[in-house]
Write a protein that binds this DNA or RNA. Structure first.
Length: 502
RNA sequence: GGCCUGUUCGUCUAGGGGUUAGGACAGCAGGUUUUCAACCUGCCAACAGGAGUUCGAUUCUCCUACAGGCUACCA
């Protein structure tokens, strides 16, 4: 069939060694975007062939992070599909079958050498090369390929463990075109006979990935740049097995601010952590899209639909990108600011409930319905002031918990040339005159009057009030805040604070 | 060591044989303002270095430097 008309099938193939890494999330996202753009299929496959590092429970974490990001897949371990199973640990028979075929065709062979002895040889070679050396890396000398049929059988008979090595053709040139990196040519003589099936019967990455991608009819392999150097090996396998070779697209790495591969010491690298810290999936995805890709010279924010429309694999650039947390924060704030209030309310509600639960309290004075209403009134006040959902707690907690004045608040006016006590007494009476609904307009009007009478600017009066009712020099807009707090609470706090500084 | 790849403001990037090298984040300054934000205005700031090709190179070629990846019975 014409390649152009073939249905696009892409895949994301994480190995369950921890959590969904921010870099893997980008890889998944670019695959997903491409599938959506081409109305193709997005396949999820779990590469769990490394027993030592494999952790069963992390599969769920990864799947949940993908779901949270909205990167839904058409075929995968849970959903199934026509090309399963979608976990490599369940496909061992398949790998074995093709390995046997390769052995039969003399394109692979059993290797009885022990890993330990080979490792020793390798080290040895390295030591000897402290001088100019011969310019060649250690390459397995194929000694097990040269074994006679008889000794092979004897070895098998005696139960001697073996791995299976791929027989790399000599003097073969491998040439492929990467969507991002362009034409890559390397000579097979630089590649040693690498292992495709380990002694324990499990396949290695470079082999299983080919078998799976081919059998799952993957048309476009989109993955991290760390696999670019592995691609020639894989192409050799495709050729040996007579499989169609897919298109390759390698994505530049994501690095930490120090230019090193993004790792734990750079801070948050798992999607989970970003969820917990109050990031929005739209913001994360938008930011990730901009790491290594740009649409034009100015656009920095894209909805998912716009990305699907505008995203192109061949405009991805080659340079590794440093992860800029500040820019992510900005993007997140942008999305919060531009969000429907009703949507933000729900998110804030979850956040606030979690916070209250962590303090083992429910909203002290409101029923659940009241809590919702209260949050609905608070939302527009904080919308432009937060960069993450989690951050909202700092700004909003005095709405929900009793104030315990900090030392900073208690001493706030000590060395300032302000008669806070006098001002507060005036404020108290001025506010007491406002009716019980405590509308912002009226409280503001009254406080302006106080300012005028005391010959102060509103700024000073607001400052004093803010410390008293909010226990902080920073708050949401003061008069709206008092309105939501209500007359009773507001006045009570002012009274409390007066007592403290008296 | 070998092989592969890359290098535009601090960061993400646009651009591309002749441009005041553009935008965004961050930073700085100002405006607005009841604080903090948001918003508006302005400023700072880049083609790694050296050769070559060319009338002209940041753009093309080569070399160097630096960085990353692979070179595993990790993925």
């Amino acid at each position: 069939m014409d390649k152009k008309n073939k249905e696009v099938r892409v895949r994301f193939a994480p190995s369950p060694t921890g959590y969904l890494h921010i870099g893997s999330a980008r890889t998944a996202f670019f695959n997903w975007l491409y599938a959506k753009k081409k109305a193709g299929q997005f396949i999820l496959r779990i590469e769990d062939t490394d027993i030592a590092r494999h952790q069963e429970e992390t599969i769920d974490i990864i799947l949940n992070s993908l779901k949270w990001l909205g990167l839904d897949w058409n075929e995968g371990p849970e959903s199934g599909g026509g090309y399963g199973p979608y976990r490599q640990s369940l496909r061992l028979e398949i790998y074995k079958k093709y390995a046997d075929k390769l052995i039969e065709e003399k394109k692979a062979y059993r290797c009885f050498c022990s890993p330990e002895s080979l490792k020793a040889e390798r080290e040895n070679k390295k030591d000897r090369e402290v001088g100019p050396g011969d310019g060649k890396a250690f390459k397995y000398d194929r000694r097990c390929f040269k074994l006679s049929q008889k000794s092979i059988e004897a070895n098998i008979e005696s139960g001697k463990p073996f791995a299976i090595r791929f027989m790399v053709p000599e003097n073969e040139v491998i040439n492929f075109r990467d969507t991002v990196y362009g034409n890559i040519t390397i000579n097979a003589s630089n590649i040693e006979d690498f292992i495709i099936i380990r002694t324990n019967g499990l396949p290695t990455y470079n082999y299983s990935v080919v078998v799976d991608d081919a059998l799952m009819k993957i048309t476009h392999v989109i993955r991290g740049e760390d696999h670019l150097s592995n691609t020639p090996k894989q192409i050799l396998i495709y050729r040996a097995l007579g499989f169609d070779i897919p298109d390759f697209t390698h994505l530049p790495m994501i690095l930490g601010q120090d230019g090193q591969k993004l790792s734990k010491r750079h801070g948050s690298i798992s999607i989970e952590k970003y969820i917990e810290d109050g990031f929005l999936k739209e913001a994360i995805l938008n930011y990730l899209a901009l790491l290594g890709w740009a649409y034009d010279e100015k656009t920095t924010t894209f909805s998912i639909d716009e990305l699907i429309e505008k995203f192109e694999l061949d405009s991805i650039n080659k340079k590794p990108a440093k992860f800029d947390y500040d820019k992510l924060l900005w993007v997140n704030g942008y999305y919060i600011r531009n969000m429907e209030n009703s949507v933000l309310e729900k998110l804030l509600e979850t956040q606030i409930k979690k916070y209250l639960a962590s303090r083992e309290m429910s909203d002290p004075e409101s029923s659940p319905g009241n809590l919702q209403q209260k949050i609905a009134r608070i939302t527009p006040l904080v919308k432009e002031r937060i960069k993450t959902l989690k951050e909202s707690i700092n700004l909003v907690s005095p709405f929900f918990i009793e104030t315990v004045y900090s030392d900073q608040s208690k001493n706030y006016f000590k060395n300032k040339n302000i008669d806070a006590l006098k001002i507060l007494n005036s404020i108290y009476s001025a506010l007491d005159e406002v009716d019980d609904r405590f509308p912002a307009k009226e409280t503001e009007g009254n406080l302006r009057l106080v300012a005028k009478n005391l010959n102060l600017n509103l700024r000073k009066v607001a400052e004093v009030t803010r410390i008293a009712i909010w226990n902080s020099p920073v708050s949401p807009p003061l008069f709206e805040t008092m309105e939501i707090l209500g007359k009773e609470l507001t006045l009570r706090r002012i009274k409390d604070y007066i007592k403290i500084i008296s």
